[in-house]
Amino acid sequence: MNKIFALAGVVIKELYRRKDFYVLFILTALLTFAAGSANFFHDAKIVRYLKDICLLLIWVSALLVAILTAARQIPAEREARTIFPLLAKPVSRAQLIVGKFLGCWLATGLALFVFYLFFAVITGSREQIWPVGVYLEAAWMQWVMLAIVIGMVLLGSIYFAAPSSTTTIAFIVVVGILFVGSHLNTIALQQGEPVQSILAFLYFTIPHLEWYDLRDFVVYDMGMAPVGAVALATLYAAAWTGIFLLLTWLGFRRKNLTT
């Protein structure tokens, strides 16, 4: 485990030494403050739109942090050839993949923590309420979903040489699932064959990332989602993350790194 944590530590250091996170955080904060300063019919108690906007920015920012960080890990190691002195040490390729995954996931978690802290302070200062449990559950579900995304991106990064291709494709896939993932079966019913079967197949085989979006519970003060369901969703995410990491390893284990 020490080797995996060592590899993860380097990814985390990279995150806080690069400017991506700071730029995204400042942008989120600026847009939130700008939205918060708007005056709607002289009513200072209006807060939901602000929570909505801030959470949307957090979702986009965290997704960007996760995808950008994960997409560049292995291609950057290969391009900068840092992978050679690393793999010349007693590190297996499986450990490398797990270490990179853990680093990206922990780094994203760190970013999420900062974002949600900011969110809690902003909304708390307006509403004077602190539903910590609701925030923690929403952040946990988002973080768990990002584990699937990071696994997916790491898999993509084995096959697409340029991190930009991986990033673009991953972003489209993730946003696509978030928007229509739960409706693919409904859409399928409106289509003819073979599109109907393809969409129905996709509906049952894609990772359902949309489950992990608990923003509505936070925005509309609906309390917490059922804890049992959250636990099951966590298990589902762990399974999908495992699938992606296994596929990444299968693609990477015999890859000739010198070409």
Binding site: V10, K13, E14, R17, R18, A80, R81, T82, F84, P85, A88, K89
Partner: peptide, 12 residues
Amino acid sequence: YLPELTYYYKFL
């Protein structure tokens, strides 16, 4: 192992 050309994590 010392490679011919050295490449290390430049942010460290």
